[in-house]
Design a protein around this nucleic acid. Structure first.
Lengths: 212, 212
DNA sequence: AGTTCAGTGATGCGT
DNA sequence: ACGCATCGCTGAACT
């Protein structure tokens, strides 16, 4: 029973049992196993983005030589890999840990909208907030117009569906409940037809088409 | 310019540029690159479950020998990996493509609840449906009691938060709108404190604690 | 092709 | 630690 603390890749014939939040079994086959510095482990099949089995960061890996098993533990979750044949094994030395720098995120789109509120909403805005916190969640943009009406904008970078409308409803209902007059908006480059239909059924909801 | 159709792993010093839904850059470093049969490509750093950059299934990989670049294209998304130094390279032959068999899913929990509706709800159920479709989404369990009141149950396998309540609200509001008396329930092993508070503010919403 | 939702979601940010 | 929202989410099911 040896603790495995170094990162490696392993191509092997094996099977996998997982027990934790869910439970799963993977029949014997040739799979790629990756172990990272932070305990992350992934068993990859020949297709699909998602690994067949895995442990997220924080897992602890043990090698049981007698049983030819790799055992990864993390909280109440256990992954057992039984090895039958090793085709390729390599430790990865000097593996970098940089992060990507990403642009075109939702917060960028939100900031762009924030700068043009009067134009986009067609009303005179007195005061506006980003990530305005309410008991039911944070509102991307809350704009208060000269008549003290609140304009609640939920920004989405992709193609929001009806669940985004529910998110907006939740914020609007909160202000309804405390007697604050308001309008609700979804602002995005696209939207599903169902979501648009849903929005158009309410007189105090609107869709705003925006782009980067 | 050679089309790469075989799966491989590559440990190399490289940098990565991604342009598509978002845009990102990854500074030069030593990363693990995985290419699968279905076009999936992942650039893995030494930490975190999530790859630094990737392409999902369906991407097409090209090797540009003169520029030492791997270029993956998929719809309007492009990934460019520029190689500076190759440490390990291995083709993966006979890579298996089995799927895991998983248990303890939400649908199992839903089925278990479905079998005990009278006990769980404390009313006499006349008729019940799984995945009952409405214009605003599918209801996990819809149970009709002897008084023609609808009981709408949203099942969650994990720890639902306030957004699950919004999902429930959406279904209930639909029946409210068409004049159908109803009660709404979240059924799960756990729930966040805010979600529970939110539910308890409505007289016709209830939380049901259930376990596998 | 479009829409919706589950996921062992993971990850980051806030309190 | 808990709660919440985003994600280049992915993947699957259904229309």
């Amino acid at each position: 029973m040896i603790k495995v603390v170094y990162p490696f890749i392993l191509y092997a014939k094996c099977d996998v049992i997982y027990v934790g939040r869910a439970s799963s079994t993977l029949v014997p086959g040739n799979y790629l196993i990756i172990h990272k510095n932070d305990g992350t482990i992934k068993i990859e099949g020949s297709e699909l983005f998602t690994p067949l089995n895995y442990q997220p960061p924080g897992a602890m890996l043990i090698w049981d030589e007698s049983k030819k098993q790799l055992i990864s533990n993390r909280n109440d979750e256990q992954l057992i890999i039984t090895l039958y044949d090793i085709f390729y094994y390599k430790e990865l030395k000097h593996w970098s840990n940089n992060k990507i720098h990403i642009t075109k995120t939702e917060s960028e789109l939100r900031d762009k909208i924030y700068e043009q509120l009067n134009t986009i909403l067609g009303v005179s805005i007195k005061e506006a907030f980003k990530e305005f916190r309410t008991p039911v969640g944070s509102i991307d943009i809350l704009a208060v117009d000269e008549n003290e009406i609140y304009h609640i904008i939920e920004v989405k970078r992709g193609k929001p569906n009806i669940s985004a409308c529910g998110q907006l409803d939740r914020y609007c209902s909160y202000f309804d409940k405390i007697g604050q007059k308001n309008y609700g908006y979804i602002a995005s480059p696209k939207i599903t037809s169902n979501a648009l239909k849903y929005i158009n059924e309410s007189s105090n909801r609107k869709y705003i088409n925006v782009n980067y």
